[in-house]
């Protein structure tokens, strides 16, 4: 994958992942060098939030061409998937986050992409990022959550 000419159609062809047909398929996907959100996930450059990092003993996994499913939506069918050219990007779920919202850390040497059936695709510039989920203040008593103060995770 090159950094300038990738479209949603390219991504879906390469990964076999589908997106909804009303999304613009042929427009080049912007590559973002910084903080960006895709629905209930946010991609945070590690140099922006220094309280997060991969664990020292983190078990890293290479991101294969078919991608890594980061999170699946409430209806079960809408995953956020991280895709990259093989050998350029690695991912670990062993992450340190005082807010307990991070689901993992990615390190990529080339542009990686986050793809979602409803939100479409977005490019992630080379660098190290934590991926966090979104929370909201719970209106019920907290269950066995790792979150503080009775918060709950958002699932869109």
């Amino acid at each position: 994958m090159t950094t300038t000419t990738v479209t949603l159609a390219d991504l879906t062809r390469r990964t076999g992942l589908d997106v909804l047909d009303h999304l613009e398929q042929e427009m080049a996907i912007p590559v973002i060098d910084g903080l960006q959100a895709q629905g209930d996930l946010i991609v945070v450059p590690l140099d922006l939030a220094r309280d997060m990092s991969a664990a020292r003993t983190a078990r890293w996994r290479p991101v294969p061409a078919a991608g890594v499913e980061l999170l699946r939506g409430a209806a079960g069918g809408n995953p956020h998937t991280l895709v990259a050219d093989p050998g350029t990007c690695r991912w670990t779920t062993d992450v340190i986050d005082p807010e307990a919202l991070a689901i993992g850390v990615l390190e990529t040497r080339a542009v990686a992409y986050l793809i979602h059936p409803e939100h479409g695709g977005t490019g992630i510039a080379p660098g190290a990022y934590a991926v966090r989920r979104q929370r909201e203040r719970a209106t019920q008593r907290p269950g066995r959550s790792r979150l503080s103060g009775g918060d709950r995770l958002v699932a869109d």
């Binding site: 912007p30 973002i32 060098d33 910084g34 903080l35 960006q36 959100a37 895709q38 629905g39 946010i42 945070v44 922006l48 939030a49 986050d97 807010e99 919202l101 979602h116 939100h119 479409g120 695709g121 977005t122 966090r132 979104q134 929370r135 909201e136 958002v154």
Partner: peptide
């Protein structure tokens, strides 16, 4: 909602 401060979130470049 993402565990970020106001100033951190203000730097959001793109939302899809």
């Amino acid at each position: 909602s993402y565990g970020l401060t106001r100033d951190q979130y203000a730097r959001l470049l793109r939302r899809t």
